[in-house]
Computed example of a mutant assay.
Amino acid sequence: MRLHREGNTIMLTTGLVLLALNLLAYYYLFSDNPTTIALLLAASSVLFVLVVQFFRIPNRLLTVSEKQVIAPADGTIVVIEETEESEYFKDRRRQISIFMSPLNVHVNRNPVTGIIRYFRYYPGKYLVAWHPKSSTENERTTVVIQLTNGVEVLLRQIAGAVARRIVWYVKEGQPVEQGSELGFIKFGSRVDVFLPLDAEIKVKIGDRTKGGVTVLAELA
């Protein structure tokens, strides 16, 4: 396991602030109360571990397949439905949505290999990630990847009530490999994937996904 570069500043800042608070408590506030100091140290340690684990990248054997769409994120499947995709395709598509809690790994990965044909970033609101309007009103990105056979897959990073920063590493015209890093969403969020109607869905509501590993669907 390694730690993601997006967490360097946050982890360093958190560590320094907690260290300063504990030194202040030890020397000035609770110098005569070792129980309080021990409790503060324990609470600080737990908080720091929670922050660090958020930026973890576990070692995984990634799934690679031209016919399969792989989960772009860790989380829980909360939506599987046929819906109108109105931004890019402007027609009916299969939508799969993955909710990412603060305890999940938050690296976002490219679900297929291909070329980035479309990219847009939209500032917006911070509705809870499972809100029906979060995919159209929250801060978000839209990424469309075209496979070599011409099939296109749309992925949308969506910020939630806690997540306040979306990071992306792709741009239009860029070739990407399945499983490579697409971006990162800090502290809880959601990812939507829009597929052709003839895609064979391989997951169900409530399934837990592993980014870069779990097969979401097979393309015709």
Rank of each mutant, 00 (worst) to 15 (best):
R2G: 09
L3M: 13
H4E: 03
R5M: 06
G7M: 07
N8Q: 12
L12M: 12
L12S: 14
L12C: 09
T14R: 13
G15P: 09
A20Y: 01
A20E: 11
A20H: 06
A20T: 13
L21T: 07
L21I: 04
N22Q: 11
L23T: 06
L23W: 07
L24V: 02
L24N: 09
L24F: 08
L24T: 07
A25W: 12
Y28W: 06
F30E: 06
F30V: 04
S31I: 01
S31V: 02
D32R: 08
T35S: 12
T35M: 09
T36V: 12
A38H: 04
L40F: 09
A43N: 11
V46R: 13
F48C: 09
V49N: 12
V49A: 15
L50Q: 13
V51H: 14
Q53R: 15
F54H: 14
R56G: 04
P58K: 10
P58T: 05
N59E: 14
R60G: 00
T63P: 08
V64P: 10
S65T: 03
E66Y: 13
Q68G: 00
Q68A: 13
V69D: 10
I70T: 06
I70F: 04
P72A: 01
I77V: 12
V78L: 02
V79A: 07
E82S: 06
E84G: 04
E85R: 05
E85N: 03
D91Q: 14
D91E: 14
R92T: 10
R94M: 12
S97Q: 05
F99Q: 11
M100K: 09
N104F: 02
N104G: 05
V105M: 10
H106M: 10
N108Q: 13
N108M: 08
N110D: 03
N110G: 02
N110H: 09
I115M: 08
Y118R: 13
F119A: 11
R120L: 12
R120F: 00
P123Y: 13
K125V: 00
Y126Q: 03
L127E: 02
L127Y: 01
V128H: 10
P132I: 04
S134F: 00
S135P: 04
T136G: 02
N138P: 01
R140L: 05
T141C: 11
V144M: 12
V144G: 09
V144K: 13
T148I: 14
N149A: 05
E152M: 09
V153H: 07
L155F: 01
R156D: 03
R156G: 01
Q157I: 03
I158W: 08
I158F: 07
G160I: 02
V162S: 12
V162R: 12
V162F: 00
A163T: 04
A163I: 06
R164Y: 00
V167C: 05
Y169K: 11
Y169Q: 11
K171E: 14
P175R: 11
P175E: 03
V176P: 08
E177Y: 01
G179A: 02
S180L: 01
E181L: 04
G183S: 06
F184E: 03
I185M: 09
S189P: 03
F194W: 05
P196H: 05
A199R: 08
E200K: 15
E200C: 07
I201F: 00
V203R: 09
I205M: 14
G206N: 07
G206Y: 00
D207M: 00
K210A: 06
G211L: 01
G211Y: 03
G212N: 05
G212H: 05
T214N: 10
L216Y: 01
A217D: 06
A217R: 10
L219K: 10
A220F: 15
A220I: 13
